[in-house]
Amino acid sequence: MTELAATDPLPKPKRDIAPILLPIALALVTIPLIGSPSTWLTLTAASLAMGMMIFIMASGLTLVFGLMDVLNFGHGAFIAVGAYIATLVFAPFAASVQADSLWVNLAVLAPAALLSMAVSGALGLVVERVLILPVYGQHLKQILMTTGGLIVAEQTLYALWGPQIIPMPLPTSLRGSFILGDVAIAKYRVLATLIGLAVFIAIQLVLNRTKLGLLIRAGVENREMVEALGYRIRRLFLGVFMTGSALAGLGGVMWALYREQVHASMSDELTVLIFVVVIIGGLGSIGGCFIGAILVALVANYGGFLVPKLALVSNILLMVAILMWRPRGLYAVTSR
């Protein structure tokens, strides 16, 4: 037998850390370029917040892609719907939003976010059943159907709310910045970063510590084999799809607060950003999606500061560069 002796050390699982180092390296390299450390810190904090929001919106999409090979071009609709739903809660409780008390503010914010997630998730159920199930396994039709769904969703929002931009003021206690020496970091950005981190950790825990998560990861890699082991992956997929939609809704609320306005066209703008993140990260990889979101945000913020003209196409340049390096994204977890 050619077996190793029992005393031989276990081969260490190789961890692929190059992608993790990438944003860190990027951040360090820009310090001398930007010059002022306080500006750099502010920019970096802004990037983290933006990255976390994008991550929240993109996480569901990457899993849906990876798990079921479904191209959902309508994912942006869940973002916009989430944001609009939040305005429904904000408007009648404007006084509580204006109140200068964190707890009173949160008492509006939390239900608004939860309602948005519930509505987006429910919409996800409808979309999955009506638009995706009938064209399951056919990429071309998936793209066409979900693009059609995006148009319908956007137009319905316009019909219901009108074409104008709806203001969505930040609650009073989240305005302003934390001042540390000569560095100012907006409070809301800190909150957004914390929420994003919480979502990331929660997803990681589910994926790594539960049987459900194992099934999802296994399904991302090889759906057929999961079915051949006797698991009904369609149900699992529906759950993931709804969760992803709900997270997109949450991201929509957060983005609306960040921009302090709501408009149906936000879905178009964000769809491109999210696609770039999902591609960079590698289809189906949550870790890749997380790093990709941070990278996109860093490049946008640093780029916007250093070479404003270039910032317009920075996403594309980043995407091209990453794909030249790793053609299937940072982490290739699917077998496709």
Binding site: L214, R217, A218, V220, E221, E224, V226, V333
Partner: peptide, 18 residues
């Protein structure tokens, strides 16, 4: 073979024991 390469040996078998 279609082992789930991102999962450990143990996790592969955990899933197989449905």
């Amino acid at each position: 073979m279609a082992v789930f390469s991102d999962l450990t040996v143990k996790e592969n078998l955990v899933l197989a024991a449905r």
